[in-house]
């Protein structure tokens, strides 16, 4: 009997089915388009390149409108995912949510007792969520590989 000895790859969903990989690729592409749009909109607004107020409002709302595409793509990925992949993603999201509940009040309370927070404090919670989600996914892939 021949065993399959695929080298473990801890990347997100690297070991899912072909359908999972296709859905994930759709999600990643839409996420990339959203990120580029967000960066472009931020750049244009900050550089004062917007010609009218209506164009400014449209530009400011564009990334939020486009965010529905990766959100829907991720929902599709989860709905159609292999059941073990779904469990791994669920555990990673639970970890990320837990981390947000730990960090968010800590940042607020430290600020209120006078601890000087850096100007990037508003980015701390989303960064922690993203990092713990990725770490949780990698840990899940390793646990069940």
């Amino acid at each position: 009997m021949t065993e399959t000895n695929t080298p473990p790859n801890p990347a997100i969903c690297s070991q899912g089915t072909q359908r999972d990989r296709t859905n994930l690729r759709r999600y990643q592409v839409s996420l990339l388009i959203w990120a580029v749009t967000l960066l472009a909109a931020t750049f244009l607004i900050k550089m004062d390149r917007v010609t009218s107020e209506a164009a400014g409002i449209g530009l400011a709302l564009l990334p939020s409108l486009l965010a529905f595409v990766p959100a829907m793509a991720f929902l599709r990925f989860l709905r159609e995912a292999d059941e073990l992949q779904r469990l791994i993603q669920l555990q990673a999201m639970a970890l990320a949510l837990g981390a947000a509940f730990i960090v968010f009040p800590a940042v607020r309370l430290l600020e209120s007792v006078g601890v000087a927070m850096a100007t990037w404090r508003n980015d701390v919670v989303p960064m922690i969520v993203i990092i713990t989600y990725m770490a949780g996914t990698i840990a899940g892939q390793r646990r069940y590989r």
């Binding site: 070991q15 899912g16 999972d20 292999d82 059941e83 073990l84 069940y144 590989r145």
Partner: peptide
């Protein structure tokens, strides 16, 4: 089974 090899292994 239409699942991943990882699932079978797990």
């Amino acid at each position: 089974l239409d699942v991943s090899r990882q699932t079978v292994n797990a």
